[in-house]
Design a protein around this nucleic acid. Structure first.
Length: 194
DNA sequence: CCCTGATTCGC
DNA sequence: GCGAATCAGG
């Protein structure tokens, strides 16, 4: 596989969307996440648009004894993206969640995770979910992947419904915080019923 | 162990 | 330019 214009464009788009290198690699196919990361760097778009908590990388290398003559003027003032350039008019149809108006009736089957009743969750855990819900990505059903927290929030019958969407705990359907409230020991749940 | 991005360096 | 191997960290 080679980096064709289309592939590079998809890479750029996904990277700017905050997708992980491995996800992008999976989407592209034929490349590993290393390839994606390598390309990202070569394209000079390592630091993503918004926030980049980056913990720096390798402070390695010998700070001293450097035969290097010039300090090498680091020129990287061009960080802002002029514009996402022109989009293919055809590929313009990314309606997130149309939500066919408010419908007081619940659509179809209920493959949704069990919504724990508030009165059988420990107060601490409850506070925890509330906390997480504030930082949740609030993704729609369509954005769910194998590694996004599938914790539902809100009423599916309303537009005020979304999924947590944070990174799941490997092997689990939920993020760390939601795994915590979803898998509570029987002991703590007993005696809590009203 | 699962994952993340960053860097190096032979190709 | 490319990306596997490796590193550093969550």
């Amino acid at each position: 596989m080679s980096w064709t214009d289309e592939r590079v464009e998809l890479l750029k788009r996904m990277w700017n969307e905050g997708q992980s290198a491995s996800q992008i690699a999976k989407e592209l196919g034929g490349v590993t996440r290393n390839a994606v990361i390598g390309k990202v760097h070569r394209l000079g778009l390592s630091n993503r648009v918004g926030a980049a908590p980056s913990k720096a990388a390798k402070p390695e290398a010998a700070p001293a004894a450097e035969p290097e003559p010039a300090p090498a003027p680091v020129q990287e003032t061009k960080v802002e993206t002029p514009e996402v350039a022109s989009e293919k008019p055809e590929a313009r149809a990314a309606a997130p969640a149309p939500t066919p108006a408010r419908k007081p009736i619940i659509p179809a089957g209920q493959p949704l995770p069990p919504q724990p009743s508030a009165n059988e969750i420990s107060p601490e855990a409850l506070a925890s979910v509330r906390e997480v819900e504030k930082s949740a990505r609030k993704i729609g059903l369509m954005e769910l992947t194998e590694r996004t927290c599938k914790w539902p929030v809100g009423d599916p019958a309303t537009e005020d419904f979304w999924f947590c969407g944070l990174a799941v705990q490997p092997g689990k359907p939920y993020c760390e915080a939601h795994v915590g409230v979803a898998f509570q020991p029987m002991s703590s749940r007993r005696d809590r019923r009203r």
